[in-house]
């Protein structure tokens, strides 16, 4: 067990060091969130400040998500481009341990996205969260982080076995923002899309996050936390099977670098 923790820690440490010098990481945690926050704040404050919480937090949530799953997932793609993906599969340490270390690093970096976006809201638009319940907010953020972490861990095998998985998910990026209610409630979506939203764990955590920062919000926040955690657990179960499949397939096909 200690050796696995050490391996995950080294993976975390190495990937964090690489991110510090990677311009892509700065694009994801700093530039993108600020751009989306700016658009959100301009649009959402055009008719008053009633919906401003979505502008204050929306860019940060988008940045957090992008760094966690895109940066975390893409780190596997980069291993392929750097010719080190086979070594990662061949070492005695399970793939999932290495992936957990990488994604914990991106999770930590992703949280930074809230700093510039909240700063932009405050200094650029004089906008603050209307009614923050610190305890509920902290728990909601924790649940959101957990849901992002599990999704990133679950998706990574897809990045490993398919070169186009990243492209496809990248194409869906803005759709995910909408489906998970990162910048507006999912009730804004067409009725037929809402069931998809409810099957996504970040939807519930994001709903709880906004409810804990909005004065008039009502609802079962604890139930939303549980829904998010439950869905995340379900993803985890599916991902275990996916990891086993990928590890076997990579060895059998021998096409890891070409996938």
């Amino acid at each position: 067990m200690r050796s696995l923790i050490r391996a995950a820690w080294r993976s975390f440490e190495m990937s964090t060091r690489l991110r510090v010098v990677s311009p892509w990481a700065y694009l994801n945690w700093l530039v993108f969130p600020v751009i989306f926050a700016a658009i959100g704040l301009f649009v959402l404050t055009s008719s008053g400040y009633a919906r401003v919480a979505y502008g204050v937090l929306g860019g940060g949530v988008i940045g957090f998500w992008s760094v966690t799953y895109l940066d975390g997932g893409n780190s596997i793609q980069e291993e392929r481009w750097n010719g080190t993906l086979e070594q990662i599969f061949a070492v005695p340490t399970p793939l999932v341990v290495i992936v957990i270390g990488k994604i914990l690093g991106s999770l930590l970096l992703g949280l930074l996205a809230f700093i510039p976006t909240v700063g932009l809201a405050y200094f650029g638009f004089h906008a603050v969260l209307p009614a923050l319940d610190p305890l509920r907010f902290a728990v909601s953020l924790g649940v959101l982080s957990f849901s992002f972490f599990i999704i990133a861990v679950a998706l990574t095998p897809l990045f490993a076995i398919s070169r186009s998985a990243f492209t496809v998910l990248n194409g869906l990026e803005l759709g995910v923002y909408g489906l998970c209610g990162f910048m507006f409630p999912v009730s804004q979506l067409p009725q037929w899309l809402q069931p998809i939203s409810y099957a996504l764990s970040p939807t519930w955590a994001t709903r709880a996050l906004y409810a804990s920062a909005t004065p008039s919000a009502s609802g079962d926040i604890a139930g939303w936390w549980l829904a998010s955690i439950g869905l995340s657990a379900l993803y985890l179960v599916v991902s275990v099977a996916l990891y086993r499949f990928v590890e076997v397939r990579a060895r059998v096909s021998g096409e890891l670098a070409l996938a």
Partner: peptide
């Protein structure tokens, strides 16, 4: 995904944001 999904999701996302606001 790049030529069809991304444009559609961009349009839908910003329209829904605008409609919400």
């Amino acid at each position: 995904a790049y030529k069809v999904v991304l444009p559609v999701t961009q349009i839908v996302f910003f329209v829904q944001l605008g409609v919400f606001a």
